[in-house]
Design a protein around this nucleic acid. Structure first.
Length: 282
DNA sequence: ATGTTTGTTCCGAT
DNA sequence: CATCGGAACAAACA
């Protein structure tokens, strides 16, 4: 659920709220996946100041200074929620952080319905290893479309599969990838080997634009409401979806096709995103 | 009730 | 040996 725009919104808000707070107490309520292990996590984190909250691809990084970082991956149903101390504990809470500044306290709940996410304690070196796993982000001003093209062409799969591979390009998930392909007018099943540099440029630009739009709209909240910001508020990008979850092409009103590509539900316009049209362009 | 659902990793096949 | 596709992970909903 949490793709780049959602993680970006959460990490920004969290940084604004709790930067320079101290972690007063940590409660772990389940056998959630915590690395290296639960006891080490509690011991290492307790009493540490939060120097900054940042983001690496779809990971939230809570920097504690002293060469220590907490990496949070929300996967599909993870949430970070701020509630008043006397509010009811949210469903599926696994971890509670009690934070304190000179003048204020905050309670942060980490929840995850399906428990696909994980929490990793990392030193500087491990954080670098994590960063190195990821391809460039389309929203990075330094990212190079020509490099993107090379990465695409090094794969032998569908373009949809390739852009969901975070080592090729990071930040896209199924929803934004689907809309990015529509905006670039590229059929999701186009073999990467058939991508022209012009198609790659278009796709890179579309991916950048759709992710920036998602950030502007503070992410997308689907019917299941699994993504909300740290205050429990929904995003609005779902109101701007081009083809994801839609019936008809917003461009030509043709009935959209739906099929599994790489195991993921994929919507596309058979007319606007037509393989043979692309070959003509090439 | 069986089939779906957002992300990632791992295993078997190619 | 490297790479790719698909299953698996867990839970809720239709």
């Amino acid at each position: 659920m949490a793709e780049l725009p959602e993680v970006h919104t959460i990490s920004n808000d969290l940084n604004n709220l709790v930067k320079d707070y101290t972690i007063d107490d940590v409660k772990v309520l389940s056998n959630y996946r915590i690395l290296p292990d639960k006891d080490t996590f509690i011991k290492q984190v307790k009493g540490k100041p939060i120097t900054q909250v940042t983001r690496v691809a779809k990971n939230i990084i809570i920097e504690l200074g002293d060469n220590l970082n907490i990496g949070l991956h929300l996967a599909m149903t993870g949430q970070i929620l701020v509630r008043n101390g006397n509010d009811k504990q949210p469903n599926w809470t696994h971890i509670i952080l009690l934070l304190r500044s000179n003048t204020d306290t905050q309670t942060i709940y980490y929840t995850d319905m399906r428990m696909f996410g994980k929490i990793t304690l990392m030193d500087k070196e491990q954080l670098q290893v994590l960063k190195d796993k990821y391809g460039p982000e389309p929203i990075d001003p330094n990212a190079d479309p020509a490099d993107f093209y090379e990465r695409i062409r090094s794969k032998r799969t569908s373009i949809k599969n390739a852009i969901l591979n975070q080592a090729v390009i990071s930040g896209l998930g199924n929803i934004y990838a689907t809309d990015a392909l529509f905006l670039a007018r590229i059929h999701p099943e186009t073999p990467t080997q058939k991508m022209s540099s012009d198609m790659a440029n278009r796709l890179f630009e579309s991916a950048k634009n759709i992710l920036l739009e998602g950030i502007e709209h503070r992410g997308s909240t689907l019917a299941d409401k699994m993504y909300v910001d740290i205050y429990g508020k929904e995003g609005t990008q779902q109101n701007y979806f081009r083809v994801y979850g839609k019936q008809d092409c917003p461009n030509c009103a043709t009935k959209l096709e739906f099929k599994k590509v790489g195991g993921r539900g994929t919507y596309f316009c058979p007319k606007c995103q037509n393989l043979s049209v692309q070959e003509q362009l090439f």
